[in-house]
Amino acid sequence: MVITTYSKEEILEILSAIADPEIPVVSIQEIGMLRDVVVSEDGYEVLLTPTYTGCPAMGIIEADIKAILQEKGIASVKVTLIYSPAWSTDWMSDEAKEKMRKYGIAPPAHSSCGSIFKTEQEVVCPHCSSQDTEMISRFGATACKALYKCNSCKEPFEYFKCH
């Protein structure tokens, strides 16, 4: 039997230090992947939701979670993937979006994804804030991003797709 010495909030606090492997300026909590922690006699169950079903970062994140808790001497950790409710960019805080923009990635344009294909025409350049941007490809280097270029400052950039 494991003696529970950490509360759910404390575990969440520890885990909030874990960065998204693809976008290291935001944490897995800020991006909305870290959903909950269930504390029981058997240990700690961390509930994670993938951004995209095939997100290859999930394995790394799971390893990160176990490693960071191990450092605190917490060994009985189970990471469970949940699909419901489906992850949405709506869960991202304005603060997280701002960090993303400073990092050079245009954050999801709107809080609601009613019309994905309308929002993707209104992407603002993260470098010069120009609205004169053009989509190069709807699919980018990771599942969650699209490729754009700015017609004002001529810089290419990535856009975090509305989901």
Binding site: P50, Y52, T53, G54, C55, P56, I136, S137, R138, F139, G140, A141, A143, L147
Partner: peptide
């Protein structure tokens, strides 16, 4: 770009 797109689709489906 199409290489990226098709492999992105593929990745969604493997997930």
């Amino acid at each position: 770009e199409e290489d990226l797109a098709l492999t992105n689709l593929s990745l969604d489906m493997i997930g």
